[in-house]
Design a protein around this nucleic acid. Sequence first.
DNA 1: GCCAACGTTGGC
DNA 2: GCCAACGTTGGC
Length: 154
Amino acid sequence: MSFWLMKSEPEVFSIDDLSARRGMTTCWDGVRNYQARNFMRDRMRIGDRAFFYHSNCPEPAIVGIVEVVRAAYADHTAFDRRDPHYDAKSNREHPTWYMVDVKLERKLARPITLDALKTHAAGALAGFLLLRRGNRLSVIPVAAEHWKFILALE
DNA sequence: GCCAACGTTGGC
DNA sequence: GCCAACGTTGGC
């Protein structure tokens, strides 16, 4: 099993939005970055776990844990001309963009803030891509040791 | 294939 | 709202 971190802007789609979904499950659409896509398409498996991270908001933080319940399949929002994530170069025969389905496992008892994570940037969390300066990846692999360490911060 | 211009991300 | 970082685009 692999571990991940997936970013979402809470004003667009928050952990509570996920919690309110039927089956607490959603498709993770709208990823339009090749590196993030490759992680989802080539390396994510059913049963993998991911931190649900709130980005671009007053308190950036890990706020929950989700489980991958469907492996990568074509992101249909790329085919819809009226969708903000429409991309003319993707089509059903040869999709450019993919998504997975994730299900909320649980909200954290309290958010683990980016500030708290940064405290360990030079120590236990050295190498964690989220803490790399200028990081803009929306789907990030998390080393098993990092996963365990972060959860202990809860 | 280089690289300047441009758009997006995301912390602050 | 600002701006640094960085990915993408497109002219050459």
